[in-house]
Computed example of a mutant assay.
Amino acid sequence: MDTREFAVAAEEAGMRIDAFLAGRCAPELSRARLQGLIAAGDATIGGQPVTAAKRRVAERDIVALRVPPPEDPEPDAEDIALAIVFEDADLIVVDKPAGLVVHPGPGNWTGTLVNALLHHCGRDLSGINGVKRPGIVHRLDKDTSGLLVVAKSDAAHRSLAEQFAAHGRDGRLTRSYLALVWGTPIPHLGRIETLLGRSSSDRLKRAVVTQTQPDARQAITHYRVVSGLHEASGVEASLVECRLETGRTHQIRVHMAHIGHPLIGDDVYGSGFRSKVNALDDRAHGALARFQRQALHAAELGFVHPISGETQCFTSDVPDDFRELGAALGIDLP
């Protein structure tokens, strides 16, 4: 048990105890975490327990705080191989393969990235809100490959969460994806802005919706055709780079389908293009049959390091299955 004591200075008198402790314990402990400790009886003033976060402190009060060691996580640690791009005491960047679920959930309680990180990071996890667990600040769909950053400490988790909440509008975060799509978007450089919400026909899907839908959220995607106008396979297809200005569930997949160019292999949002498959030549048809996922890869990830303040940028080459499909379609890949 970690116990800390603080004497209240004159300029701190009258502050709420949660605000006072936040000022003394930042960035290690968040205010929400401190409020939980206070409610649990882990804070005292003059030796007397305080359970109300709104309690005011007075000059010369001695405030003590007990910080229990992080609890063991509920998911089991599993020895699953990871492609680690970067790691230090505060965060880890992994290159996620297609097929790996990020977080345990119904139907996927084991074999996830979180299970793998619990095994890999082990004692290095300092605890997120009091639990030894990796801090997931963004996710990739199960069948999307590419770069993903995960926090290993509370302080890193808060900073990265703030950067992802801003979606790059403050210049700290950059994300780009490569997608193979049916056809070639015109113009070759564009901005897609819609409202996204739950589909009225399928609760597991997202859709472009009107503002009247309660869960409607603004979604903005910038796209650029990298390589297109290829018909060597018998069907026109393109390689498109997408940069996110917002981060909604399935955003790129829904947006590209919305403009008439769904991702190749996306049976959820590109089912109307199944007839295209029949027009492919034998090589392309075979490559697509082996692909078995949507053609989306998180190729670039940049952010400001939560502790050092340095700007860091990572890139990931498209995986072999993506490259094989692109080659079979006659598309030049970087």
Rank of each mutant, 00 (worst) to 15 (best):
I45L: 14
R175D: 04
S145T: 03
Q213R: 15
T311Y: 10
A98K: 01
A98I: 04
P187W: 08
L189T: 09
A179W: 05
H305I: 02
L180S: 00
P75A: 03
I331R: 03
Q163K: 02
G330W: 10
I136S: 05
V254T: 10
I307K: 00
F6L: 04
F291D: 01
Q294L: 12
V67S: 14
P187H: 12
P68K: 11
G130D: 11
G260Q: 08
G265Y: 08
H250Y: 11
C313W: 02
G197W: 00
H285K: 13
D18M: 14
A39C: 06
R290H: 14
R290N: 12
V137G: 03
D170G: 11
I136Q: 12
T221A: 09
D76S: 08
E28P: 07
S126R: 14
A284F: 06
R283M: 02
R224K: 07
P306C: 06
V254M: 06
I45M: 11
D281K: 07
P334R: 04
K96I: 05
D2N: 15
T3H: 14
P262E: 12
D282F: 10
E71R: 15
V225R: 13
R203W: 04
L189E: 13
V304R: 12
P106K: 09
Q292R: 14
V318F: 00
H167K: 05
A7S: 09
H157C: 12
G171C: 08
R198K: 13
L244H: 05
V208M: 05
